[in-house]
C-alpha cells in the first residue's frame, strides 16, 4: 500500500529520492539502527528517532540534525535492519536535502564534502593533502599546526603528494557531471528514482 499524506513533505521526498527508500514506511521503530551505529552516541538523534521525526513531519528539525553527518557509512544498520530499510542510503539523501535547504547542522562537514568534490571536479582524482589542509585551515585552524606534523611524516614516507594528479580527459568528465547535475536539478518524477 502506498503511504499517502495530504502533501508530499520531506518524508515522501526522502523516500522517493533513495533507491529502495520506500521501505521506510515499514519501520518498526525497533532501534536496531540506533543500537548498531558506531557513532550513535554522538548523534543528537539516533537514526530511529530521526525517522520518527521525519514521519511526524518535523522537517526543519530533521534537516538541522547532525545525525546524517555522523554516519560513517559502515552499513551495520542496513544489514541488521529487520525491515530491510536502506538506512545508510537514506542518510546520504538526508544530507543532500539538508544541503539543498541550506539547513545543515553546524558540525556538518558539508564543506569538507564540497572541498573533496571541488578537487574531483577540477582534477578527476581526489587530493588528500590539499583536502586535509584546506578543510582544516577553514574549520579548525588551531588544529592544523598539531596535525601538520603528521602531514609532513606522510609526505616524507611518500604517502602524500603535494600536487594533485589530473586525469587526461577532463572535458569528458566535466560534460558527464554537468549533464548529471542538470538532470538532478529537475524535480523528482513520480515514483522516485527507481
Amino acid at each position: 500500500m502506498v503511504h499517502t499524506s495530504p502533501k508530499p513533505g520531506l518524508y515522501e521526498q526522502i523516500m522517493a529520492e533513495t533507491p529502495g527508500g520506500e521501505a521506510l514506511v515499514t519501520c518498526l521503530q525497533c532501534g536496531t539502527c540506533g543500537g548498531s551505529c558506531p557513532s550513535g552516541a554522538d548523534m543528537d538523534s539516533t537514526p530511529r528517532r530521526l525517522f520518527a521525526m521525519l514521519m511526524a513531519d518535523m522537517d526543519d528539525a530533521v534537516l538541522e540534525s547532525n545525525t546524517p553527518w555522523y554516519c560513517v557509512s559502515c552499513y551495520y544498520c542496513t544489514v541488521r535492519c529487520p525491515q530491510a530499510i536502506p538506512i545508510t542510503d537514506l542518510m546520504y539523501t538526508l544530507k543532500q536535502s539538508a544541503i539543498a535547504a541550506g539547513k545543515f547542522h553546524k558540525d556538518a562537514h558539508a564543506n569538507f564534502s564540497d572541498s573533496f568534490i571541488g578537487y574531483v571536479e577540477q582534477f578527476g582524482r581526489s587530493f588528500e593533502f590539499g583536502l586535509a589542509t584546506r578543510f582544516q585551515l577553514t574549520h579548525h585552524p588551531l588544529r592544523t599546526v598539531r596535525k601538520s606534523g603528521l602531514g609532513f611524516d606522510m609526505v616524507r614516507r611518500g604517502r602524500l603528494h603535494t600536487a594533485p594528479d589530473r586525469i587526461r580527459n577532463m572535458p569528458q568528465l566535466t560534460a558527464i557531471l554537468n549533464e548529471a547535475k542538470r538532470i538532478a536539478a529537475q524535480p523528482v518524477p513520480a515514483g522516485g528514482v527507481t
Binding site: 544541503i99 574531483v120 581526489s126 557531471l177 548529471a180
Partner: peptide, 24 residues
C-alpha cells in the same frame, strides 16, 4: 584514465553526479 570513485563525499552532496562519476 580512470577517475575518482567519489568516496562517501560525493554521494552526500548530489547522488546522480556521484553515480555518473562512478559509471564513467
Amino acid at each position: 584514465d580512470w577517475n575518482c570513485c567519489g568516496a562517501t563525499e560525493y554521494f552526500s552532496v548530489n547522488a546522480l553526479p556521484a553515480y555518473s562519476l562512478v559509471a564513467r
